[in-house]
Design a protein around this nucleic acid. Structure first.
Lengths: 203, 203
DNA sequence: ATAATAGTTGACTAAATAGTTTAGAATGGT
DNA sequence: ACCATTCTAAACTATTTAGTCAACTATTAT
């Protein structure tokens, strides 16, 4: 009973967009409220602080993204194809960012994590855990590809970490250089890292 | 003639440390002045803004770092050894950070670039150019290693980009995860990316 | 010595910002 | 209908912040 509101969701969307297209530190509560079309009184009704909102927002996005990942990494998809789709998906998202915001924005978790990790403990922990989850998708696909003899990865965990580092690094460089086309190299690079058998790798 | 001062240098050191251990957006001019032991009047005597100071600071650090890189990538050092030294150097720096600040801080250019690239144009451009220079050290070493037949890199530029992405990604993940030991994987990873011949790669 | 130059200081303003409060509006359950 | 509950709005305070300014101090060339 009582009044119903979507202000909470609007605030979570607003902070996500503002931080991704800008930065956490320079995004103010007033800005977030304005973007969300919500008054500050309502902000403090739902959240304790900017950090509190950011944690909720990152978590909410992650729950949505999770579904997409489950589809991309579906067991019905061949193991290597999963990783390839993930690379293509990343390119697609960044291409959309270029169209929508005129800029490559990179990975929201990594950009935010990198900025706040020395300052916002709860946010850092949330992001760390999401990054661990993401790693598991890759790791499981690699393990399967290895046991199928498609790639050489006797230590799938180590290999997955290596690929994640390359993936995150490429996305972040794309953000800094504002160059979406560099992401075209993602699958070839990952493929070469995996030592995909029977594929010609130009690099 | 006139009074002499090291306030400029003190300010550049202060902003560099504050941004690296924290973030650009949350570092205030007052904080910078306090850390530098310099009054705000003097700050504005030397610099126009925080962004102006940051550009000067990044440039000054780069000029120092450049000398170290020239030594590490000296032509007197075998090509592959140069890259290996670079990896070991990175680990050493981060280990020092852990001792000094209790935290892995990652690459200062990348962390700053990632944060400000959508907001501070001059800073972004400065960082982009430094990242291009860094790439050249790697690229030249790879080109040489390839022509010596030590590695397989028919396209040294592409290979260097790939290695930089892995390098930057690993450093940034180390910052986010606050885990210095993950950087132990840097040279093995780079080595595997290079397809170093005659080396056993466990991954 | 002194004048020109380079740098310093602290007090100042104006704006931005986080966070609070209180009265009241909208909604659903009964 | 009406009441408890959920949420909103606007005005408010206190603090932090960027940026300015004019008087002052130190240094050096002549």
């Amino acid at each position: 009973m009582g009044r119903v509101s979507d202000a909470k969701e609007k605030l979570m969307d607003a902070v996500f967009e503002l931080v991704w297209t800008g930065s956490y530190g320079t995004t103010t509560i007033d800005q977030i409220c304005e973007r969300a079309g919500v008054k500050k009184g309502s902000f403090y009704y739902f959240f304790e602080s900017k950090a509190d909102l950011a944690v909720a927002s990152v978590e909410a996005r992650w729950q949505m993204h999770r579904g997409e990942l489950d589809a991309m990494f579906s067991a019905t998809v061949p193991a290597l194809e999963r990783v390839k789709r993930y690379c293509e998906y990343s390119y697609k998202i960044q291409k959309e960012n270029v169209e929508k915001y005129g800029r490559v924005l990179g990975c929201p978790q990594v950009a935010l994590g990198c900025e706040v990790c020395t300052q916002e403990d709860a946010l850092q922990k949330k992001i760390q855990s999401i990054m661990q989850y993401k790693l598991k998708y890759i790791e499981s696909a690699i393990r399967e590809a290895h046991s199928e003899g498609l790639v050489s990865a006797p230590d799938p965990t180590a290999k997955a970490k290596m690929i994640m580092a390359y993936y995150d690094g490429l996305l972040m460089e794309a953000r800094i250089q504002n160059n979406v086309e560099s992401l075209r190299q993602m699958w070839p690079g990952v493929s070469s890292l995996l030592g995909v058998k029977g594929e010609l790798v130009a690099v």
